[in-house]
Design a protein around this nucleic acid. Structure first.
Length: 424
RNA sequence: GGUGGAAUGGCCGAGUGGUUGAAGGCGCUGGUCUUGAAAACCAGAAACGGGGAAACUCGUUCGGGGGUUCGAAUCCCUCUUCCACCGCCA
């Protein structure tokens, strides 16, 4: 959610944001409604002030005088009811609409309509060339009997899978390695709820708007499966007032993630790329309300992810996500795309977002500064590893001509010291 | 699932229809005292929104929503959450 005062003072900046993010929102119409709501509010409040004054006066009055005043106030109460009924209707729409006003992207966010116009800002690693015909992760998974997509689909429908034996072990190796990597860098591990209420989804700005992508429990529970532990971690301090001295808060979420992938029929149907359920080790930072501070942490969590995939020797590139591809709430976003030989291209594996106060304002997440004043926090998040998508790169890049796969050095201790996966 | 109890400010907690935005305590800020700190004492301070250049002013908020009333933290309905006990289950 944005600061409405800022919107009233700088409507043009928000119109520019709407244009840059390719969002469908009429700023002028909203401002008109905003004006209307404030007029109604004024009217209601004036009547209520009269009522409050009378309710101090009435107990002091006696007899006829008292009865006359009560009769008079009965009229006022009726007027107030009519006025506040009108206000409630307008205000409801006002509250609904303001959740759709996008934040203002930083100047660094490039113009562009969709992910095809994201801008590469750096590259790391050598794209490998194989002296033999490399297999895809699907073939490797089948041949080594470590990925079973067919049976996953049989029991759970499309975009589901089993990891089996060394495949499952490799996944937990890379996740646990990442977990320890971040703990080493001062993050606090949280094992979060995977099922959350509407407030957490709205507070992190997935709702309203993203309902189609989230699995919802049935009506009697009215809860949602998280698509990322960002939801749980960023909401962790919802409605709290933190002390400035506690900031920044740096958390790691280690959780499964569930996504409906509605509207992606026919896209990335093969293999482990686009699936309904995966694990993610996620970084979340809550910091002071200062763009420079946010920028510093953005660089830090981006670097953590880059350092990690460098340690796994996966070639990647970093892109500036363009206006049309960035979310409604984010003010700046980088994706890291890892090299995937079978796709003969980079595939998105990480997403690093700065929100400034957009989420924190919705979550009512504040801190008290040393001067005693309250401020709304800033929030950020970045993937550190998401699996099994990263297994595409890991399996395909480390394959040998004989069909075996080398286990990257940092993961070996997480797999009992073994150095390769081969057919048993 | 059943029965009972509860939800008040940063925290704890008093408050059962009118001057209660709310006693008291803790914590916080400033001051006195002290070489400094602690203790003690004095003083200050809720959040959110509207109007205003400002001083200031108006409104809202006692878990959420609805109702009764001229007037609700207080009475009624409803939902949510928490606690206790019982039942069931991992």
């Amino acid at each position: 959610m944005i600061d409405l005062k800022d919107l009233r003072e700088n409507p043009d900046r928000y119109k520019a944001a709407v244009a840059k993010k390719r969002v469908n929102f009429d700023i002028d119409a909203f401002l008109k409604l905003d004006e209307e709501v404030r007029l109604l509010k004024n009217e209601t409040e004036t009547l209520r002030a009269a009522q409050n004054a009378a309710s101090k006066e009435i107990p002091k009055l006696q007899g006829d005088e008292k009865q006359a005043k009560i009769a008079e106030m009965k009229q006022v109460a009726d007027k107030l009811k009519a006025s506040s009924d009108k206000l409630v209707v307008s205000e409801e729409e006002w509250k609904r609409l303001r959740l759709f006003i996008p934040s203002i992207p930083l100047d660094a966010v490039p113009e562009g309509k969709d992910d095809s116009e994201n801008v590469e800002i750096r590259k790391w690693g050598e794209i490998p060339s194989f002296s033999f015909t490399p297999k895809s992760h699907i073939e490797l998974g089948n041949d080594l009997d470590i990925v079973d997509i067919e049976r996953g689909v049989k029991i759970a429908g499309s975009r589901n899978y089993f990891l089996k034996g060394d495949g499952a072990l490799l996944q937990h190796a890379v996740l646990n390695y990442t977990r320890d990597f971040l703990i080493e860098r001062g993050f606090t591990l949280l094992d979060p709820p995977h099922i959350v209420n509407y407030e957490a989804m709205e507070g992190t700005s997935y709702f309203p708007g993203g309902e189609e992508q989230a699995y919802k429990l049935d009506e009697r529970d009215n809860k949602y499966l998280i698509g990322t532990s960002e939801v749980s971690l960023t909401s962790y301090h919802m409605d709290e007032i933190l002390d400035a001295s506690e900031l920044p808060k740096k958390y790691i979420g280690y959780s499964p993630c569930y996504r409906r992938e509605a509207g992606t029929y026919g896209k990335d149907t093969a293999g482990l790329y686009r699936i309904h359920q995966f694990y993610k080790v996620e970084q979340v930072v809550i910091c002071k309300n200062d763009p420079a501070e946010s920028a510093k942490h953005h660089a830090e969590i981006l670097k953590n992810a880059e350092d990690l995939i460098q340690s796994l020797n996966i070639p990647y590139r970093v892109v500036d996500v363009c206006g049309g591809d960035i979310g409604m709430g984010q003010v700046y976003k980088n994706d890291i795309e890892s090299w995937m030989p079978s796709r003969d291209s980079y595939g998105e594996t990480h997403s690093c977002s700065t929100f400034h106060d957009f989420q924190a304002r919705r979550l009512n997440l504040r801190y008290r500064d040393t001067d005693g004043n309250l401020h709304i926090c800033h929030t950020l998040n970045n993937t550190c590893i998401a699996s099994p998508r990263i297994l595409i790169s890991l399996l395909e890049l480390n394959q040998n001509e004989d069909g075996s796969v080398n286990i990257p050095e940092p993961l070996q201790s997480y797999m009992g010291g073994r150095t390769r996966i081969s057919k048993s």
